[in-house]
């Protein structure tokens, strides 16, 4: 196996773990943790692909940097939404947070 394939397999492992977590977790914070896993896999895949092939390495690294920035922004917003949900429903379990209006 070429080095690129191995790095891509690790990134795929991260994606699969995150996907499993997001389908199986029952609280919003747990789902957010899974999303962070998936985003990390994406970043690793981009950097590996740009460092080990003919593609522009600068573009790959800066792209991953932007993905990290977006992940930070996404985490901030998701967390404040979770705090609002926790205040309103008294829980963050996904089964109980199921009404739009009551």
């Amino acid at each position: 196996m070429s080095p690129l394939t191995m790095y891509q397999l690790v990134a795929l492992l991260l994606l699969c773990l995150g996907l499993f977590g997001i389908a199986q977790r029952r609280s919003l914070v747990g789902m957010l943790i899974s999303v962070e896993l998936m985003l990390n896999g994406a970043g690793l895949s981009i950097v590996a692909a740009s460092q080990l092939t003919e593609a522009d390495a600068v573009l790959g690294q800066l792209g991953t940097l932007l993905v990290m920035g977006l992940a930070a922004a996404e985490a901030t917003l998701a967390l404040s939404i979770i705090v609002v949900v926790a205040k309103r429903f008294g829980t963050t379990k996904t089964r109980e947070v199921s009404t739009l209006k009551d």
């Binding site: 609280s27 919003l28 914070v29 957010l32 943790i33 962070e36 992940a71 930070a72 985490a75 901030t76 967390l79 979770i82 705090v83 926790a86 963050t92």
Partner: peptide
């Protein structure tokens, strides 16, 4: 991000 999620765990009373 990890510290943020720690704060979320704290604030949502998990």
């Amino acid at each position: 991000v990890a510290v943020l999620i720690f704060f979320a765990v704290m604030l949502t009373d998990a």
